[in-house]
Write a protein that binds this DNA or RNA. Structure first.
Length: 601
RNA sequence: GCGGGUGUAGCUCAGUUGGUUAGAGCGCUGGCCUGUCACGCCAGAGGCCGCGGGUUCGAGUCCCGUCACUCGCGCCA
C-alpha cells in the first residue's frame, strides 16, 4: 500500500465497497456524535466522509484534531444506507471507516477559516494566501487559470505559432509606463529594466524570419493598481505574425479568443463575429474606448441645444459649450417612473465624489396637464416647448424617463458620461447577463495633443503603422492620422491591444519627427529595432491579450487578485513574502548604490 | 500624489441620543446527544472597540490627526 494514499478524496464510490484504502488530506469539518465521529477529509480533488468509531484507540485523538490539520486514514470503504447518501458529494454513496489514523501535520488556530466562502479582510487573505487558496472558489479559479493557459497554448501551436521566451532583464525604454529597474553589478551605474512587454523582441523575432510567434509573457509595469490591473506584473498572450494585414490578425485571433471563451463559458453566450467599432464612434456612443456592449444605453451629444439661452433658460451649459465644451446626455429610460429623486441626486454626488467632477445634471420627465412631456428639473424646466420636443425627440425619451447631462471640456464630459453610462446601466438593471460581448475597437488616432507638454505625441504605440503610410505623415494633419491600431474589448474590459507595426525606417523616422523626436533619438533609444529594420524587415503585426483579465472574466471575478496565485496588494507589496524588503548594505555596495530616502514625516 | 469607503473577539458582524459589566453567529475549550454531512443542545474561555490626541462628569459612539486595507482619479506607449 502506498505510504500516503491509494485514492484521492473525490474518487471512492460503491465499486470500492469492501476495499481497504488509504486517504490523506486536510480536516475540512468534523461532526461529533456519541456513536461515531465524522470527518470530512479534503484534498485538491474533493471530499470524502470518514467515520471513526469510539472503540478505536485513536478516537479521542481524532476528536481533538484541529481543522486544516493534515491526516491520513486507512480503512475499509463502507456503503451508506440509502437515507444517508449525500448527493452533494461525488463520494457521497460511501464512507471510509477509519481503522488506522496518522497525523502528518497539525494546524494551529486559523487566521481565516477555510470552510465557507464569505469575504475576509484582504490583508489576512494575502498574508496567508496558502490558506485562502484552499478555499473552493479561489482554488477553482487558479485551476481554471491553468486550463485557460493550456487551451490558449494548444490553439496557438495548432495554428503554427512558435513559442519563444524573451529576456526578463532588458533595457529601459523611454516610452510608455514606468520601468522596474534592476541595477547591474558588473556595469556600475547602469540598470536593466524588466520588460513592460516583449514588444521590441517580438518584432525582432519577425525580422529574424520566424513568421509566427507567441508567448505567455510576463510583463512588468511600475504603475498603480486597479481592480482589473495588478500592480507590477501580469501576463499577456503575446502574439506577432509576419506578412499580415490587420484583417489577417483579426482572422487568426478572433477564433482563438472566441474558442477559449466558449470552451470555458459554462452556459454563457459568446457573440461572434466581434463587431468592429472605430475609436471615434466608440467615444461618441459610449464615452469610452472600452465599451461595455451589454449596456444598451447610447450617449447623445446635445451641446447644440444649449447655445441659445432664450430657448433653454439655462445659462450654465451655454457657457460651457461657448467655451468649446460639450454637453453629453446619458438617457435613463423609465428612471423617472421607477426611481426616486434620491437615485438622481446620488448620481450627482457620485460624479462629484468619485469622479471629482463639478457634478452631473439630470432631468426627470413627466406628463404635463396638456399631455406634453415636461420636466421640473433645472436643466430642462425653462426650455421653450418646441425646443424641448426637439431635444427629447433626438434623445428618444418621453414621460417617465430620465436623462443625465455630463458637461465640461470635451475630454471631461465624455469621461464622465462614459462612467455615468456604466453606473446608470447597472443601477437600472440594464446590463445583459450571461453573455460575453466582444468588440474590436479600431482606427485609433496615431497622435494626440499632449496638454501637459503642449505638443503632439503618440497616442498609443509609437511602433504602429500609420494608415496611409508615408503619404499620410507628409500630407495630413497629425491629429487626423489614424493608425493600424486595435483593441479587443469584452464586457467593458480591455483585453488586448495590438497593431500593424511600422517596419520601414523612413516612415519610422518621420513618425517620430512629428512627435518631436529627431533621428538620433530614435537611433539611440530604439537602436536594436531601427538597426534591424535596415536589414530587411517583413511587414508584421500582432497583439497581446491580457491573460489575467481573460481568466477574470471567465471566472466571473470582480478583482484580478482572485485569479492570481500569489498577488500583491494595492501598494505592490507581497504581504506573505514581505516584498519589497530591506537589503543588506553589502548587497547595495556590490551594486554601487547608496540610498537617498525621503525624510520621515 | 488626490478623493471615497471600511476598521469592534481568531473570522463575519450588531452596538440606540454620548450613559451600568460591549453583544450575536462561526471557530476554540469542556460536557451532553443513537448516523451526521452548515448536525443539534448546554456551559466556558476569548476585547488596547486600528493607533494617537481632544471635547465631556462620562467616548466604541462626537471632533482632529494618523495608520492599515480597499475602490476610484491621476498614471497605465
Amino acid at each position: 500500500m502506498h505510504e500516503f494514499r491509494t485514492h484521492n478524496c473525490n474518487e471512492l464510490n460503491t465499486s470500492n465497497v469492501g476495499e481497504t484504502v488509504r486517504l490523506s488530506g486536510w480536516v475540512h469539518r468534523k461532526r461529533d456524535h456519541p456513536n461515531a465521529l465524522f470527518v470530512d477529509l479534503r484534498d485538491h480533488y474533493g471530499l470524502t466522509q470518514v467515520v471513526v468509531y469510539p472503540d478505536q484507540p485513536f478516537y479521542e485523538q481524532v476528536k481533538r484534531t484541529t481543522p486544516e490539520s493534515v491526516i491520513q486514514i486507512t480503512g475499509e470503504v463502507l456503503p451508506r444506507d440509502a437515507d444517508q447518501v449525500n448527493p452533494e458529494l461525488a463520494t457521497g454513496e460511501v464512507e471510509l471507516r477509519a481503522d488506522a489514523f496518522e497525523v502528518h501535520s497539525s494546524a494551529d488556530q486559523l487566521p481565516l477559516p477555510v470552510f465557507g466562502e464569505p469575504d475576509y479582510p484582504e490583508d489576512i487573505r494575502l498574508k496567508h494566501r496558502y490558506l485562502d487558496l484552499r478555499r473552493e472558489k479561489l482554488h477553482k479559479n487558479i485551476v481554471l487559470r491553468g486550463q485557460v493557459i493550456n487551451s490558449i497554448r494548444r490553439r496557438m501551436i495548432e495554428l503554427g505559432f512558435n513559442e519563444f521566451q524573451t529576456p526578463i532583464l532588458t533595457a529601459s525604454s523611454p516610452e510608455g509606463a514606468r520601468d522596474f529597474l534592476v541595477p547591474s553589478r558588473l556595469n556600475p551605474g547602469k540598470f536593466y529594466a524588466l520588460p513592460q512587454a516583449p514588444q521590441q523582441f517580438k518584432q525582432l523575432i519577425m525580422v529574424a524570419g520566424f513568421d509566427k510567434y507567441f508567448q505567455i509573457a510576463p510583463c512588468f509595469r511600475d504603475e498603480d493598481a486597479r481592480a482589473d490591473r495588478s500592480p507590477g506584473e501580469f501576463y499577456q498572450l503575446d502574439v506577432e505574425m509576419s506578412f499580415a494585414t490587420q484583417e489577417d490578425v483579426f482572422n487568426v485571433i478572433e477564433p482563438v479568443m472566441a474558442g477559449v471563451f466558449e470552451e470555458f463559458a459554462e452556459g454563457r453566450t459568446v457573440e461572434t463575429p466581434f463587431p468592429r467599432i472605430p475609436y471615434k464612434e466608440s467615444m461618441a456612443k459610449y464615452g469610452s474606448d472600452k465599451p461595455d456592449l451589454r449596456n444598451p444605453l447610447i450617449l447623445n451629444d446635445v451641446s447644440d441645444f444649449f447655445t441659445d439661452e432664450d430657448l433653454t433658460g439655462f445659462g450654465l451649459f451655454k457657457k460651457i459649450v461657448g467655451g468649446g465644451g460639450k454637453v453629453i446626455a446619458i438617457p435613463a429610460p423609465k428612471a423617472a417612473a421607477e426611481k426616486s429623486r434620491k437615485f438622481f441626486d446620488n448620481l450627482d454626488k457620485w460624479a462629484k465624489k468619485e469622479m471629482q467632477m463639478p457634478g452631473l445634471g439630470y432631468a426627470r420627465l413627466s406628463e404635463g396637464e396638456d399631455g406634453a412631456t415636461k420636466s421640473q428639473d433645472p436643466v430642462l424646466k425653462n426650455f421653450k416647448p418646441d425646443h424641448l420636443v426637439k431635444i427629447l425627440d433626438q434623445l428618444g425619451l418621453t414621460a417617465g424617463d430620465g436623462v443625465f447631462f455630463a458637461a465640461g471640456k470635451v475630454g471631461d464630459a465624455y469621461k464622465l458620461a462614459g462612467a455615468a453610462r456604466d453606473v446608470v446601466g447597472k443601477e437600472l438593471g440594464l446590463i445583459e447577463e450571461g453573455i460575453f460581448k466582444f468588440c474590436w475597437v479600431v482606427d485609433y488616432p496615431m497622435y494626440e495633443y499632449d496638454e501637459d507638454n503642449k505638443k503632439v505625441d503618440f497616442s498609443h504605440n509609437p511602433f504602429s503603422m500609420p494608415q496611409g503610410g508615408m503619404e499620410a505623415l507628409e500630407t495630413m494633419e497629425p491629429l487626423d492620422i489614424l493608425a493600424y491600431q486595435y483593441d479587443i474589448v469584452c464586457n467593458g474590459i480591455e483585453l488586448s491591444s495590438g497593431a500593424i507595426r511600422n517596419h520601414r525606417p523612413d516612415i519610422m523616422y518621420k513618425a517620430f519627427e512629428i512627435a518631436g523626436y529627431d533621428q538620433q533619438t530614435v537611433d539611440t533609444e530604439f537602436a536594436g529595432m531601427i538597426n534591424a529594420f535596415k536589414y530587411g524587415a517583413p511587414p508584421h503585426g500582432g497583439l497581446a491579450p491580457g491573460i489575467d483579465r481573460i481568466v477574470m472574466l471567465l471566472a466571473g471575478a470582480e478583482n484580478i487578485r482572485e485569479v492570481i496565485v500569489f498577488p500583491m496588494n494595492q501598494q505592490a507589496q507581497d504581504l506573505m513574502m514581505n516584498a519589497p524588503s530591506d537589503v543588506e548594505s553589502k548587497q547595495l555596495r556590490e551594486l554601487h548604490l547608496r540610498l537617498d530616502l525621503p525624510k520621515e514625516k
